[in-house]
Simulated scan of single mutants.
Amino acid sequence: MTGGAAPAASAPLPAPEAAPEPGPGPGKRGDGGIHRSLASRIAGRTGGGAVAVGLVLVALFWMMPTFGLLVSSLRSPQETGTSGWWKVFTEPGQMTWDNYDRLLSDDDMMRAFFNTIWITVPSTVLVILIGALAAYAFAWLEFPGRDWLFLIVVGLLVVPVQVALIPVSQLYGDVGLFGTIAGVVLFHVAFGLPFAVFLLRNYFAGIPKDLLEAARMDGGTDLTIFFRVILPLGRPAIASLAIFQFLWVWNDMLIALIYADNDSAPLTVALQSQSRAFGANIEVLAPGAFLSLIVPLLVFFAFQRHFVQGVMAGAVK
């Protein structure tokens, strides 16, 4: 071979360096564990069976007065006056249905019970219907002054009931509604609407706009969209509102005590009048109080699933 120098052999590439072993980063121990604060360790252990047992015991303790009222309503007045309700655990033969027989045969208490239904059911239905219509308008309809009107509705939430007692009494006296069931219902509807509009409007505003636009493209009117789209999708919020309104009206005594007379008084007023002679009519007072308690409890359990969905709505996007 003649001529220039031979080409130099290419130098071998250096071997890639091994990646360093991951060291203990922030918040980690050298053995791969994780440093946990004392609070996190306590929180991690609170999901065990001991905590569940403790919560069950708290729930049982919380329900004890209700159970005691039930047992007292099933005992005779003589036994109730001489011993505590826990005596039934040793003498279960004390329990009888005689008190409920007397309650059902008491015309005043039965009239008060049905008055409570005539007051509570219309007050709840009207608040839901009117509040849902207004909430749909505030959420999806465009009209002048919409935002200002909604702010006024929200501002009405802070108006206490006591402020309107005297003016509404004068108004009811002028129009002839004082001492009637209709007057009590209208008062509850008027003071229940601000919360209803506020709750339902915020829920309806979260409904996807595409659903409403698709309904409009199919020729749906506002009423059709409201009844066929808004109400089915808003069922959790409506159920939550129904529970709140029902419990508020059913347990109310202040409004009924002022605006209802003896013929239109609900069960709370009747029980209040019976409690003045507690020692003489415990056989009517105890079952009446339990009847007043068990109805809203059954309503809550009937709508419990929808109520939980309504409370959690909007918590997760």
Results as ranks from 00 to 15, higher is better:
residue 114 F to N: 07
residue 189 V to Q: 00
residue 98 D to M: 06
residue 9 A to W: 00
residue 198 F to P: 07
residue 310 G to I: 13
residue 26 P to L: 12
residue 126 L to H: 01
residue 98 D to G: 12
residue 68 G to P: 01
residue 106 D to L: 06
residue 37 S to H: 03
residue 21 E to H: 02
residue 175 V to I: 15
residue 98 D to Y: 02
residue 217 M to F: 08
residue 189 V to A: 02
residue 24 P to C: 14
residue 97 W to L: 15
residue 312 M to A: 14
residue 250 W to R: 08
residue 20 P to V: 15
residue 55 L to S: 09
residue 211 L to P: 09
residue 24 P to I: 12
residue 311 V to M: 08
residue 208 P to L: 09
residue 44 G to W: 00
residue 72 S to G: 14
residue 180 T to M: 04
residue 50 A to C: 08
residue 19 A to I: 13
residue 228 R to Y: 00
residue 260 A to K: 08
residue 191 F to E: 01
residue 38 L to T: 15
residue 97 W to T: 14
residue 107 D to H: 11
residue 124 T to Y: 00
residue 60 L to V: 15
residue 156 L to H: 04
residue 156 L to F: 11
residue 84 G to L: 10
residue 79 E to F: 04
residue 223 L to Q: 04
residue 315 A to M: 10
residue 239 A to W: 03
residue 22 P to H: 03
residue 92 P to Q: 03
residue 250 W to G: 07
residue 2 T to M: 03
residue 103 L to M: 10
residue 53 V to Q: 00
residue 121 V to G: 04
residue 8 A to G: 11
residue 128 I to K: 00
residue 211 L to E: 07
residue 188 H to N: 12
residue 267 L to Q: 04
residue 191 F to K: 08
residue 10 S to N: 03
residue 311 V to I: 15
residue 86 W to D: 07
residue 55 L to Y: 09
residue 111 R to Q: 12
residue 199 L to Q: 07
residue 268 T to I: 05
residue 194 P to D: 05
residue 34 I to V: 15
residue 109 M to T: 13
residue 56 V to F: 00
residue 17 E to F: 07
residue 295 V to G: 03
residue 89 F to V: 14
residue 19 A to W: 00
residue 146 R to K: 11
residue 292 S to E: 05
residue 201 R to H: 01
residue 233 L to P: 09
residue 117 I to T: 14
residue 312 M to V: 15
residue 85 W to F: 10
residue 5 A to M: 08
residue 18 A to L: 13
residue 86 W to A: 12
residue 308 V to T: 12
residue 302 A to K: 05
residue 79 E to I: 10
residue 15 A to M: 11
residue 253 M to R: 06
residue 30 G to E: 10
residue 289 A to Y: 01
residue 298 L to R: 06
residue 84 G to T: 13
residue 68 G to N: 07
residue 228 R to D: 09
residue 263 D to S: 15
residue 108 D to F: 05
residue 196 A to F: 01
residue 36 R to E: 13
residue 66 T to E: 04
residue 288 G to E: 05
residue 140 W to P: 02
